[in-house]
Simulated scan of single mutants.
Amino acid sequence: MEFPEMSIFEIQNMTSQALDYSYYSEEPGGEEPCNLDPNPMEIIAQTYIHSIICALGLIGNTLVIITYIRYKKSKTMTDVYLYNVAVADLIFVVALPFLIYNEQHGWLMGSVACKMLRSAYSINLYSGMLLLACVSGDRYVAIVQARKSFGARPRTLLYSRLICSAVWAFAVALTVPTLLYSERSEDPQATCQLSFKETGTAKLMKVAVPSLQMAIGFLLPLLVMMFCYTSIVCTLLRARSSQRHKAIRVVMAVVAVFVVCHLPYNATLLNHTLSLFKVRTCASEKIRLRVLAVSKSVAYFHCCLNPVLYAFVGVKFRTHFQQIILDLWCFSKKHTSTARSSRATSDTCISGRVSSDGSNNMRSFSA
């Protein structure tokens, strides 16, 4: 069985923000329609994988947000960017279970929830990737342009907040098509999908939405990161520091994880977009959608790795996070110990706090 060029019925049944597609095409010979639904084992595997992503992403990004709010009193530009990255990732992992469940069992919510959840996913996709590019740019200025940027620090927090506001506004603007055209449809079952009344608009959006995602959500951040981190590595190689090898390894890990997580999905998405208006066999379309689903799950996993790569690897952040653990331990001991042991616990907590504060001057590449 082959898929002909797109009809208006096929175009109107675009799902998953124009990234996942379901075609029900039948040949003149009267063969059965091509069933592109995933098999039960694939659904179970995706459910477990997405559950792990949600759990790890929720824990990691929540800890990052709490740490920055509670203990990072003297923030830098990178701190502001990483806080916003954590917010974007947290909103994404909160929305992800609703999206996955409704995709697998039919959309049980209304049109308003359809628009809100699809838009939340799109906004945080763009904002998260662009903010990671901002992080690499700030590190480039701090390390490669260190002398020029020295003395400008008192103004950078204001600049970083303005840049973050601009990134969020830009992400919202890119999400307008998703917000306008996402609708709850009942044919053949309840789904949340992009729906159009005009064929020309449908064809345009079917190509424009994934193209924007690849260009703004992957290629632009990748180019910025490659330029900035290549310059940083060259600068570190010329520096005489015992920490430079560790810093270079961190840089390589950041770039490698970004490429490994997002390149397969965007390459598959590009191939899928280019094939939308060509004749396709049922078997090839099944394989293409399966690869797209697997690579998309790998891309989702990046939100779990961001806290480790960008926050916990920094000495200062780890110090503040250890202070959170110490405070929780002290709080529990305060209410469970006797008066004598409470005094000992109090001394331990004070000692730990002094040690934590005294190590604030320690810095690493991730600071």
Rank of each mutant, 00 (worst) to 15 (best):
E5G: 14
N13Y: 09
Y21E: 08
G30M: 08
P33K: 10
N35F: 07
N35S: 14
L36P: 04
L36N: 08
E42S: 11
Q46W: 07
Y48A: 14
S51E: 02
C54I: 05
L63A: 09
I69A: 05
S74T: 09
D79S: 08
D79A: 08
Y81A: 11
V87R: 06
L96N: 09
L99I: 13
G106D: 10
M109H: 05
G110V: 03
S111L: 02
S111M: 08
K115V: 14
R118K: 08
S122W: 01
Y126M: 10
Y126D: 02
V141T: 05
I143K: 06
L158A: 13
Y159H: 10
R161A: 08
I163F: 10
V167F: 06
V167A: 01
V167L: 10
W168H: 15
F170S: 11
F170L: 15
A173P: 01
L179K: 06
L180P: 00
Y181F: 15
S185K: 07
C192I: 09
L194A: 04
S195P: 00
F196C: 08
E198H: 09
A202R: 01
L204T: 14
K206L: 12
A208K: 02
P210A: 07
L219Y: 04
L222T: 06
C234D: 08
L237G: 00
L237S: 09
R238S: 04
K246Y: 05
I248N: 07
I248Q: 10
V250N: 08
V251I: 15
A253S: 15
V255G: 04
F258N: 04
F258H: 09
T268S: 12
V279F: 04
S284R: 10
R288G: 00
L292T: 03
S295G: 06
L305Y: 03
V308H: 02
V313M: 07
V315F: 11
T319I: 11
H320N: 14
F321C: 14
L326V: 01
R340D: 11
T345E: 04
D347S: 03
C349R: 06
G352Q: 08
S355C: 03
S356A: 14
N360V: 03
F365A: 06
S366N: 11
